[in-house]
Design a protein around this nucleic acid. Structure first.
Lengths: 114, 114
DNA sequence: AAATATACCTTGACAGGCGAGGTATATGGT
DNA sequence: ACCATATACCTCGCCTGTCAAGGTATATTT
């Protein structure tokens, strides 16, 4: 397992929902976008990516359809649903509170003098 | 699984090392401190806590000894090692970079106009 | 012909978290 | 005397997300 993977764990769904928020996309493209945004420091492994799609579709957060490519490899496009937008909002809020919580738990406390 | 548990996953070791950084402590006390710091919003489950101790001791990040309580339940105290301090420093740095990375991946991008 | 890029998918294993259960000592209430 | 509660430790086995490894297919470049 790579260095950051344990810390990124649990954010996969949020990352995907964020990627779909402003428009439909497909797995390969979403992953390329992630690599670009992180300057190649992070990518979703394919198995992780596609199992996340399954999970999200089962939960009703996204829906999918086959693209009508006449050339090249076929693409399965994903759309974020209204439920998915709500999930995204909730996950964002949870992240903000988790972030503060983690910071307070792992930073060393100043010793209170006097 | 509780709401935040997936987001906290992977931080257990760092939290424990932070708790031991300024002095020896034992499982029950460390967990109480976590509950206090988070105003009861978070706690390490016992199974999680003790399996983390095993992991950290095996890795050489902490060492342990039995307290000499003459009354009450026995306590196993843990000490952070020099290796553990280095691990803590590394995990903190990783957290800072992961935090920035996650933020950039899950926040919605402003549409660039013109 | 072979390598590379695009694009999807499945299987099986691993690791961390955790529910459930167990052990033991001390205190306070009835 | 009995019970609940708090303190304090431990183990077993399951669940879930991640991922290495493998597979399929089309199109382009060398």
């Amino acid at each position: 397992m790579s260095i950051t993977s344990d810390l990124l764990r649990g954010h996969t769904d949020t990352i995907i929902l964020a990627g779909l928020f402003t428009g439909d996309s497909y797995g390969y493209e979403i992953n390329k976008a992630i690599q670009q945004k992180t300057n190649g420091r992070y990518e979703l492994k394919e198995a992780t990516l596609y199992s996340a799609f399954r999970r999200l579709e089962e939960a009703g957060d996204i829906s999918s359809y086959w693209g009508d490519e006449t050339t090249g490899a076929r693409r399965r496009y994903y759309t974020i649903t209204e439920t998915g937008r709500e999930t995204y909002t909730r996950l964002m809020a949870e992240w903000k509170s988790a972030k503060a919580m983690i910071d307070s738990l792992i930073e060393l406390e100043e010793k209170k003098n006097g």
